[in-house]
Amino acid sequence: MTSMTRRLVSSFAAAASAVLIVSPVLAAEGDGPEIVRQQWAFSGFRGQFDQAQLQRGFQVYKEVCAACHGLNRVNFRNLVQPGGPGFPEEAVKALAAEWPNQITDGPNDEGKMFERPARLSDPIRGPYRNEKEARAAQNGAYPPDLSLIAKARGVARNPSWWTHPFLMLGDIVKSYQEGGSDYLFALLTGYTDPPADVKVGDGMYYNKAFPGHQLAMPTPLQPDQVAYSDGTKPTVENYAKDVAAFLAWSADPTHDQRKRIGWQVMLYLLVTTALLYLGKKRIWADVKH
């Protein structure tokens, strides 16, 4: 039942997301639309992030998303660390220094706050200082910080009550945790023309993956918008996939280490359980029970 609660809650989490200006459509919305599961390099218990993909994903974030969205819980230094995009330190230092959204520091010796370029230890700021400034600039909508977005969203599934336990078990065995990235990919590639009977509100855009189907964010990705340098095709699907992977890392920067240690722990536990079982058998050998 937990995946179902996750499903329910995550679809409503999406519904409650601050991107949306509350619309009457939402009130009638039950579960969110079905989201197609994608193959990710980091899928399942063996998955690890693909460093090249994280680098491309950061490029998409920087050139597209960062125009409106911050990444406040990620520091520039994190972009250097293993398990992430792993950019060279010097390149990230330069990137931080040129980042358009500077850091407010101070007070200085005159008691005044001042703006300075970002350093490695500073967070990746978005263009807005606070929610009010963002809403004023965005026609009332609030582009949320993206640091945790991949964990704060999930996929909706609506199985019948009797298939539900089996799907749940399947998810546990496969250790499916990529709902957030699946949702982000579906959202970023989900902009279509609205069906004839749907009237899209003023300043809203139709998206088949978004709960309620109307959101204030215009189609962010266009083909050929970001120039990849590693030969990956500049398509909307590739952009969406790369940035969704990057945001999965932003929400879970210790992911690779977690799964690596996880295998060591599982192996240790398996061997120890087997040995303890043999020991137990030996101890009980003379006692019928």
Binding site: V9, F12, G44, I172
Partner: peptide, 28 residues
Amino acid sequence: AWFVFFMPDYLGHADNYNEANPLVTPPH
């Protein structure tokens, strides 16, 4: 350990990765 290392968020709610906001009620 399976849950701790491979699916730590499975038993929780995605919405709890959104900071508490008294002005936004989750519908469910």
